[in-house]
Amino acid sequence: MARKILIVDDSTMVRQMVSFTLREAGFEVEEAENGQVALDKIGACTVDLIVTDLNMPVMDGITFIGHARAIASTKFIPILMLTTESQPEMKQKGKAAGATGWIVKPFDPPKLLGVIAKVLP
């Protein structure tokens, strides 16, 4: 059975590109345009990994991770930040919120798949 990955990003293009990359690699994909929609999705289905943007309307990535880590089903799953931000203090915030890793956009498809393969249990 294919592993399911939730992509959280307000950019339709980024969601499409991540989805495309993951589906080509055999993953099942769920999409959400912000943190709040993502929380609704993880309440409705089980996911194996989350890839989230940082800056999003309604609910940003850091806040979303904080909420997700409080939910039993997503408490221990890998959550990767995928963002244009690369400031160390932002990475520190992400790490403190419970992110598993930080990837700076634009992502290289083989590299993204490599990181996912490494963190996915």
Binding site: S11, T21, E24, F107
Partner: peptide
Amino acid sequence: FHGSTGKVVMSLQSEDIARQ
């Protein structure tokens, strides 16, 4: 073909960077 799509995927993400 798949290898080439990787480069295109990276280039297409410029839309998001440009938007921001």
